[in-house]
Amino acid sequence: MQYMIVAAESEEDMAARKSTEPGAFEAYMGPWFKYSTEMQEAGVTLSGNALETPDTATCVRVRDGKRQVQDGPFADTKEQLGGYFIIDVPSFEATKEWAAKCPAAATGLVELRKVATLEEEK
């Protein structure tokens, strides 16, 4: 079963990424390296990416054939989409365990989403 681990990070974590304070970036990044290494060693990761901070996001809509472009992320929430992993695990229970280990779960939250397999839908 394929799941998407959607990391929704706290404002503090997002700020730590760009912090110039000594050690702040390392303190933020350390757990992420540990986590992704652990998943890779377990052989569950299919792919994953970190995203630039939400203030670099742009939203696009097309209404009545006209393009609408807006500065900023879609969601106006305390926690913000900061990255994701696609993992392949035998059960939903196993996915939850991996989600709980995600650094975002400790300070923000993780949304787990099942990847759709289009054949099944038919």
């Binding site: 998407m4 879609f74 969601a75 926690e79 779960a105 939250l109 993780v110 099942k114 759709a116 289009l118």
Partner: peptide, 29 residues
Amino acid sequence: EPLEPSATGAIIRNHNNTMQVQDGPFVEA
């Protein structure tokens, strides 16, 4: 990747090493 509807997912928090599982999605929109 397409995703299954958000109701089939879950929200996981693990603040202070206490795992909490909630129905998704986290964005109330």
